[in-house]
């Protein structure tokens, strides 16, 4: 017990998460985002088109609907561009940081010793582009899970291994 020391912590010299430089996602991931937007708007467009074609009462308002549709599409594209630029991640020694959002920018930080499990997800288009998403789950519920998309497949794989290693390591320490 003699060598037990309990110095006060200098809170101002703690590492700051906000000063770490984040890694951007792979540019190819923007294609995935665009593709998803295209699919969504195509479905809305076809459904709307059918509605305006078959329901005669509203047919004469088609130009208003088209205008709204185009405005919404342009706005979504604009937002998606900002959102892509804002997305970033970094793995620190003790935690993972993920930033995202366009109108509201939010940063989630998950310490490794609270990670429950890690998963790798590949979408249909992502696989074709050689991308993957690392998903990090905690016990804090859905919205506390971190999902980092737009990583190189191999990179994602190694991140997953790294995280699993860390998680197992921590669990073993606890068992002892």
């Amino acid at each position: 017990m003699d060598n037990f020391i309990n110095e006060p912590i200098d809170t101002s010299s703690l590492p700051r998460f906000e000063e770490v430089k984040l890694n951007p996602l792979k540019p190819a991931y923007y294609k995935v985002m665009l593709f998803n937007i295209a699919v969504r708007y195509l479905i809305i467009g076809i459904a709307g088109g059918c509605a305006f074609y078959f329901i005669e009462d509203i047919t004469r308002y088609w130009y208003i609907a088209l205008l709204l549709f185009v405005i919404a599409l342009v706005f979504t594209l604009f937002i998606s561009r900002i959102s892509f630029k804002n997305k970033g991640y970094v793995f620190r020694t003790h935690d993972v940081i993920y930033r995202s959002g366009a109108i509201a920018i939010s940063t989630v930080i998950v310490p490794y010793n609270r990670v429950q499990h890690v998963a790798l997800h590949e979408g249909w288009l992502s696989r074709r582009l050689g991308l993957a998403r690392v998903e990090i789950f905690t016990a804090g519920g859905d919205s506390s899970d971190v999902k980092i998309p737009g990583l190189d497949k191999e990179h994602a794989e190694s991140i997953k291994q790294l995280l699993m290693g860390k998680v197992l390591n921590i669990q073993e320490q606890h068992e002892e």
Binding site: G101, I103, A104, I105, S106, T107, V108, I109, V110, P111, R114, T138, A139, G140, S143, S144, V146
Partner: peptide, 11 residues
């Protein structure tokens, strides 16, 4: 007891 921290800022 914290599992994760989220900080959010509107533009």
């Amino acid at each position: 007891k914290i599992q994760a921290v989220r900080l959010t800022q509107y533009f």
